[in-house]
């Protein structure tokens, strides 16, 4: 039997289960992603999308299964800051007294000394990241004064500054303006070319077809996983959304 070289996979989640005080949120979920792959995570509210992200970031402990990142443990992935998480806009306190610059600088914390005093290289990384998301005019703007799209870009910049090779994005397109949407999709193509691996959750089926090489349909466990063209079928989507037909979800045209 051929042995699997786990180093080939950026993310390798094997039969993972997560339960909160005995309540199962996710079971027997598998996911394998290679460098340069973009994967869409699709499911209903409460289907375990956020739980999946939480497991991959180590924010919740898995009760069963195994997660390997670049063939290594999750712990060492954290130490090496391999994974960046871009939260949903609703997932952050937008009234927190903090500027764009400070948020993006947090992407560098993992590699700084204990006082988190920025070195020249950190300052440069933060500047570059902010430039890539086109927020250079808002360096010292408090995040509370930003639009939804600008705030989303701020957190993307944090992930860029972190120089993570895996990006986990929770609803990257929800509540953003057209300009941000365009900028994010351009960044996705750049990330792909840089060999980054992206896992994004979304409600928008059009985005899945547009960006995602792979799609992972979940409803507490994996309903279907594979190439978008093969897996993203009306039947699978119907199963994922508990019997609601895709016509109802996308409108009759699609």
């Amino acid at each position: 039997m051929e042995s699997i070289n786990y180093q080939n996979f950026r993310i390798d989640a094997e039969n993972i289960c997560v339960d909160y005080n005995g309540k199962v949120a996710l079971y027997d979920a598998n996911l394998r992603l290679k460098p340069g792959q973009i994967c869409g995570l699709v499911g209903m509210n409460g289907a375990g999308k956020t739980t999946f992200f939480n497991a991959l970031t180590g924010f919740v402990n898995i009760s069963k299964g195994k997660i390997r990142i670049n063939g290594e443990s999750l712990r060492s992935a954290q130490t090496d800051q391999v994974i960046a998480y871009v939260p949903q806009n609703e997932g952050i306190d937008s009234q927190f007294p903090i500027s764009v610059w400070d948020v993006v600088m947090m992407g560098r914390y993992g590699s700084m000394n204990i006082f988190r005093s920025p070195r020249e290289s950190d300052i440069q990384a933060v500047k570059d990241a902010i430039e890539r998301v086109d927020l250079t005019d808002h360096l010292s703007t408090p995040i509370g004064n930003l639009s939804g799209g600008q705030r989303k870009r701020t957190f993307l910049a944090r992930a860029i500054a972190q120089r993570a090779s895996i990006l986990l994005l929770d609803e990257p397109f929800s509540g953003v303006d057209i300009r941000t949407e365009k900028l994010i999709s351009e960044l996705f193509i750049q990330f792909k070319n840089e060999g980054k691996t992206i896992l994004l959750s979304t409600h928008d089926m059009i985005h899945v077809r547009e960006f995602c090489d792979l799609v992972l349909l979940i409803n507490k466990t994996v309903v279907a996983y594979g190439e978008t063209s093969e897996v993203f079928t009306p039947e699978n989507i119907t199963t994922t959304f508990g019997g609601i037909s895709p016509d109802f979800l996308f409108g009759p045209e699609s």
Binding site: N54, F59, Q78, T79, I92, F96
Partner: peptide, 11 residues
């Protein structure tokens, strides 16, 4: 502000 990010970068 963001404990999840802290956790993700090994803090």
């Amino acid at each position: 502000f963001d404990p999840r990010h802290a956790k993700t970068v090994g803090i």
